[in-house]
Amino acid sequence: MIKLKPEAIIVNTPELLPVSILYQIIFGTRIVYDIQENYHLNIKYLSPLPSFLKPLAAAWVRGVETMSAPFVRHFILAENSYTSLPFIGSRWTVLQNKALPLPAPATGKGDLNAPVFLVSGTLSLTYGIREAIDAFLKIHETIPGSQLHLCGKVPDKKSLQYVGETIDNHPSIKLTGGAGGVPYETIQSAIAQADFGLVFYPENPAINECFPTRIWEYMSYRLPMIIQEERMWTNYCLEKKAAVIFKSGQASTGDFLSILDSTFYPATIDYSDIYWTAEEHKLTELVNTLTLDR
């Protein structure tokens, strides 16, 4: 039997913070808290708990995080917005879930009279499947030959029911995946075959300041995107010439086709910051610092 004493423990859920701190006190180690979500806001605004329990559970999680903070050597943050969390101080590194570089990302668009739109990844009401479908149906009124491909996992019964009923009523929408999800290679294939990605999310304090992972994925494939106005990622996508904003009022066929025929992903723009490469370097430096700083 091989026994190892870890030099660092990476904790990625608040429930494991107390036992990790106990281990630190008894055996000595460094704790890194990997904050993948704003758990406090998730419980308040996304949890299926009864309404009267949500504030209590959210307060308990925030209390655990706050009391554990002095024992944490470093915080890893999945979003830039998490730097405002009140308990992390200045001991943090942002590691966003960016895309892996592709050998030859696809460019160009197919037939604009019959474009294929895509929503991939988590297909839930919480993460905007209703808003994306509503936008597509308005587009479909303008471009009757358009199709919508939903590819990914539908994680809950309410979302699954909504998606199923929508597909039954609209033959132009198809689903690959469902409750069981799909292999990531299937999602990659769907991105490569699509003409446009749809990125729409509902207003919700738990996700308003989160950068959708699918944006990195779509950009890595040079997939043009149709996006919302006034979201935290809107200006970034527009600056990269990766997207156009959809307004339901611009419903004349000629106007909308001209928008879809915009120039996307020009060679003059640097896209190196969309990839995981830089994040990987930051992670390596952090691990080296933690293990060498005895």
Score class of each variant (00 low, 15 high):
F71S: 06
N97K: 08
P86M: 14
R91Q: 10
N80W: 09
A104F: 11
A69L: 03
F75R: 03
A106W: 03
L85I: 06
L85Y: 15
T107V: 13
P103A: 07
A69H: 01
L85T: 12
S84N: 14
A106E: 09
S81P: 07
V94T: 14
S68H: 06
L102M: 11
P101Q: 11
E79D: 15
L85F: 12
A78T: 06
L95F: 11
H74E: 14
A69N: 00
L95V: 13
A78M: 09
L77N: 03
L100R: 13
Q96P: 04
Q96D: 09
W92C: 00
I76R: 07
A78H: 10
F71L: 02
V72H: 05
L102Q: 10
H74T: 07
E79G: 11
V72C: 08
T107R: 15
N97I: 04
P103V: 07
W92K: 01
P86G: 15
L77W: 01
L77C: 00
N80G: 12
H74F: 12
V94Y: 09
H74P: 06
F75K: 01
P101N: 06
W92I: 00
T93C: 09
S84R: 15
N80V: 07
A104Q: 14
L102P: 09
F75G: 02
A78I: 06
T107H: 14
S68V: 05
N80K: 15
G89A: 03
I88K: 15
R91H: 08
P70W: 10
L95E: 03
L77T: 00
F87T: 02
H74D: 08
P103H: 07
F87C: 03
E79W: 12
R73C: 00
P70F: 05
V72D: 01
R91S: 10
E79I: 13
F71K: 09
V94A: 12
R73L: 00
Y82L: 14
S68T: 07
P70D: 08
S90C: 00
T107P: 01
T83V: 14
I76G: 02
V72G: 06
A78S: 13
F71V: 00
P101D: 08
W92D: 00
V94H: 13
T83E: 13
V94Q: 09
G89D: 14
V94N: 11
F87V: 02
L85C: 14
L77K: 02
